[in-house]
Nucleic acid binder design. Structure first.
Lengths: 366, 366
DNA sequence: CATTTTCGCTGAAATCTCTTCATAAATCTA
DNA sequence: TAGATTTATGAAGAGATTTCAGCGAAAATG
């Protein structure tokens, strides 16, 4: 084994393939071939290369590789937020699947801002990601999604119901909402309300609302009252109080996601209403917390991790031009979980047209 | 405005700077100068370049740029899991901060596996990330962390207490654990237990345990009983039953994180014990759910988002060679939140040396 | 008025790291 | 010795930045 006058290799500047070639007294091409096992090399040369690699702690630069192969082994993942465990779980699933396949995940949280969303997508495309898994605010109008389609980058939607010709892993929001109405009806509720983030920030909420309306129609209920709120609403209890003042007959509220449902329950409590005695609440998503709170949350249960996994698999299939993974039947992509937050309509509220208790809380939400 | 015979630019192959130069009838250098505002250009040329850029929908390839500038505007972020909201929130903070600064975040979840951890770090270094924010399983022995130090890549630990010469944003686990003991003592508890994931997967848990032991010592309590469990434990109620059989005098359990604490409460219930009547439980982290469950969780409250933000700021400062951001006083990096899961020792259990109720549950954890 | 200086603009060429392709050199067979 | 193998190598190319030298034209100088 030959030794070189090693004066402490500067590790700050990692060794390049040229350095290795110089040390091994051969051409860079040879180094490449030896290390990638992509062509012949004499035992002697091979050994010298390997020794040089070890000594210099050489590792290929992925950047150089990417430039030449125009492939980055990197996937862009765009979701609204990690504060909602639904997305956190989904991202976990996405990341796991890609990791196993040797891809890294570039994560962006848009905070429900479609401006951030399209900007982020542009940046990710400039970084040459090999694919996308994304939850956009509105699949039909998303500027970012359109440019992904134009460039024909492999991608799959997550949670967004797929527009035509698009791949997507999502819950069947429409059917799920129908189911929620049925559950309310089962409990004798007649006057329902729907609570959601502003629809422009989430097409899922809109789908659920439309399903909810149709469900009410099918069950011959009146059109549900609607309360749309901003993402950063701090005074939900006030909005709810106003809402119930305008719609005093409402006995059941369907919140478009569990976080919102839990916040609703707390806010209702803050304005002196009991759940489920005065008002029943049903959520959407089935986050684990829902089972641990009191009253437990009646909700649609979904499997975000599985969805993330599926979306990632789909993207991998598109990349590898292999067969797309089978999706679960959309009709059965969810379950309804009963919980203490939804109970039969009490006798006293059955004929009742107005809610009595309205003690204004002097505590401020923080 | 001149027009070119555009036969449908193939958007699948994005335009390069060369294409732009050809269309603008100038050299690539000029295009670069115009677009980066990095040198002079006549008004005429500038206009032609801009027109070509628009027509071709040109965007710089970050890969080409990275190769030349040896900077990627990408940060590696390594955490154990997103299933724990503590990490999800922290990552959200990290991602937000870097996004504002124009960096993208490459996320890896290790699932508490130090093998995955060091492998991931190697890959990220090969991808030439400009910095790291990471929570390693053990800051002292982490192979990955060591190689980051060797290569002198800007980085900052998150949640891990910093070894010497390391930057880190973390809760003062030791002090927090002392505080927990004080709170138990305040409630007359004398025999305590500690529940944690296997220490090799989390040095945080170990720090908390050591603080807990010292707290017991200072308060002249006996050494706390220890129950270490695997990450994927499914039968916690059985382990707990055995644990309490061996340590029948234990009236208070400190769980090393909130998720574990909540699971503990459920498991205790499953084996017929009431919380807090039979056993008090205190958690660590202060996840939001803790306030919504029944009984509410007594716990150490931290601010993961803020920690993530701080760690990201620190990395940015190192990269920009600017002043490091001020950290909050470690002594005040947490708060104790009272909750229903911790109550004064009942008279009946005060002298009691054994727990009576031990109905074995016939339900299996799933 | 002729000549030099200056200065704004410009494009060719080198560089960054890696892979592939074609070619050259060395070895072995017939 | 010609031809077929086996090895080894240089050069080109992937997309961008940057240095450097050149080219005019205008200004300054003698």
């Amino acid at each position: 084994m030959e030794t070189f006058p090693l004066g402490g290799w500067n590790l700050r500047q990692p060794a390049t393939i040229k350095d290795v070639a110089r040390h091994a007294k051969c051409g860079v091409a040879t180094v490449s071939r030896v290390l990638n096992n992509t062509g012949p090399a004499s035992a002697d040369t091979r050994e010298r290369v390997l020794a040089a690699v070890k000594e210099l702690q050489f590792e290929f630069s992925e950047v150089g590789r990417s430039l030449q192969s125009s492939t980055t082994r990197t996937i862009g993942c765009v979701v609204p937020s990690l504060a909602n465990p639904v997305y956190a779980d989904a991202v976990q699933g996405v990341q796991e699947t890609f990791h196993e396949a040797g891809y890294q995940t570039l994560l962006v949280c848009t905070n429900y801002d479609s401006e951030v969303e399209s900007q982020a997508i542009r940046t990710l495309m400039a970084k040459q990601v090999d694919g996308f898994v994304l939850t956009v605010s509105d699949a039909l109008s998303s500027q970012g999604l359109r440019s992904i389609q134009n460039r024909e980058v492999p991608h799959c939607l997550l949670f967004n119901t797929a527009p035509r010709d698009e791949q997507s892993w999502a819950v069947d929001d429409h059917s799920a909402a129908l189911r929620v109405v049925d559950e309310f009806v089962e409990m004798d509720h007649v006057h329902l309300g729907f609570l959601a983030l502003k629809f422009k920030t989430s097409d899922r909420a809109r789908q659920r609302y439309e399903g909810f309306i149709e469900g009410c129609f099918r069950n011959k209920l009146e059109r549900p009252a609607l309360l749309e709120i901003e993402e950063d609403t701090q005074d939900l209890h006030i909005l709810l109080a106003d809402f119930l003042k305008e719609n005093p007959s409402v006995t059941g509220i369907f919140a478009s996601n569990d976080i919102l449902a839990l916040a609703t329950i707390r806010s209702l409590r803050a304005i002196g209403l009991r759940v489920p005695n005065d008002i029943s609440v049903v959520g959407f998503d089935g986050i684990q917390v829902g089972e641990m709170v009191d009253p437990s949350l009646a909700t649609i249960v979904t499997d975000p991790r599985m969805l993330g996994h599926g979306a990632a698999q789909t993207v991998l299939s598109v990349i590898n031009k292999s067969e797309l993974p089978a999706q679960p039947d959309p009709e059965f992509s969810f379950n309804f979980r009963h919980g203490g937050s939804l109970s039969p309509l009490t006798a006293e509220r059955k004929g009742d047209e107005k809610i009595t208790a309205f003690s204004t809380p002097n505590q401020t939400a923080q």
